[in-house]
Simulated scan of single mutants.
Amino acid sequence: MTQQQILDELRAIALRHGKARRTPTAIANLTLMRAEAPTPPVQTVYQSGLVAVIQGRKRGRFADVEFEYHPAQYLLTTVDMPVSGEIIEASPEQPYLSIGLTLDPAVLAALMLDLPDVQLPDAGIGLGVYPMHTDLLEALLRLVRLLDRPQEIGVLAALAEREILYRLLLDNPALRQLAQMDSRMAQINRAIGWIRENYAQPFSIEALAAVSMMSASSLHRHFKAVTRLSPLQFQKRIRLQIARQMLAGQSTNAAGVGFAVGYDSPSQFSREYRRLYGEPPARDTARLRTQPNLQAV
């Protein structure tokens, strides 16, 4: 099959099974995304995984890095990253369609045993856009086809997913870093996990370095190389994203939300919120509640 034929079949399956903006599927790590109009930028956290756009186009930004991807490419995130994303090409006739696959660390670690022993580079950036080659696209199609044959999912889904992850490992040194528990990428991933779980708590670089089993200077250097943010900047971004979700979803006052996510000063919370989102909390929340298309896809 040509790439175009594979994409056509993937689109047909996604249109049959993906009716909502985000559709979890019977395959545990597989999600379908759909949108019928462009969206404004939405702040969210991309978790470790693969996103393959099969129709339409999307643009994203984190820190000072901007990226765009379309059906000839895929997005790979090796650590959780706070990102601003917007769909820039979509219509009711040709909706934006994408397929998301969450990375399974246990499968990645097992597959590393079957890869050639190579010297890994230092931990690089935690998110990238790559060309979608035919072997990977065919493997993705084998997995997605199982949505039309649910009785086969229990036996074949794990095999298809394993092939996808194997091909990703072959092509992506950063992903091989993540799969090795003693690598810099794995250590940074532990630090990110700790921050996300304890985002409302103050911390010192020395304490976070101990969690990551790194020196403080090494943690700071490699964390910024992977995320383009310092650990404290990363925590601030997570706090503000969670605060925005809380404000959009419930009628809680801004000062109370700021306190819940770790801010002692309402004025500091309002100032940093406005710096990131362009408006103070009350005004931004009022806009969010009138624009349901601000949900992340």
Rank of each mutant, 00 (worst) to 15 (best):
P41W: 03
I205E: 15
L156N: 12
M185H: 07
I238A: 11
G124V: 01
M214L: 12
G278S: 10
I125N: 09
F259M: 10
S48L: 02
I54L: 11
A200P: 01
L15E: 15
Q73F: 03
N253Y: 03
P231K: 00
A14K: 03
A216G: 09
M181L: 08
L101V: 10
V144C: 12
M132C: 07
I13K: 10
R176H: 01
Q3H: 07
D171A: 07
R16H: 14
A106T: 09
I195S: 13
A207H: 14
R237W: 09
R196A: 09
R11G: 09
T39G: 11
G128C: 02
T102S: 13
R61A: 14
A139S: 11
V257F: 03
T25Y: 04
Y199E: 06
P266E: 05
S267M: 00
S267C: 10
G100Y: 06
Q151T: 10
M132F: 02
W194P: 05
L147P: 13
E279K: 00
P150G: 10
R34T: 11
S265N: 14
P71R: 01
E93F: 00
G124Q: 08
Y273T: 05
E86I: 00
Q43Y: 03
Q291P: 10
K236Q: 15
N172A: 12
E272I: 02
T134C: 10
H220E: 15
A260Y: 06
A243I: 02
I188R: 00
S204Y: 04
L137S: 09
Q73K: 02
V257W: 11
R11K: 08
A209L: 06
R196N: 14
L168V: 04
S212L: 03
P121I: 04
G49C: 01
R167T: 01
I195V: 09
V118L: 14
A225W: 07
A26I: 07
A286F: 06
R275P: 10
R21H: 13
A179P: 03
G49S: 05
V51M: 13
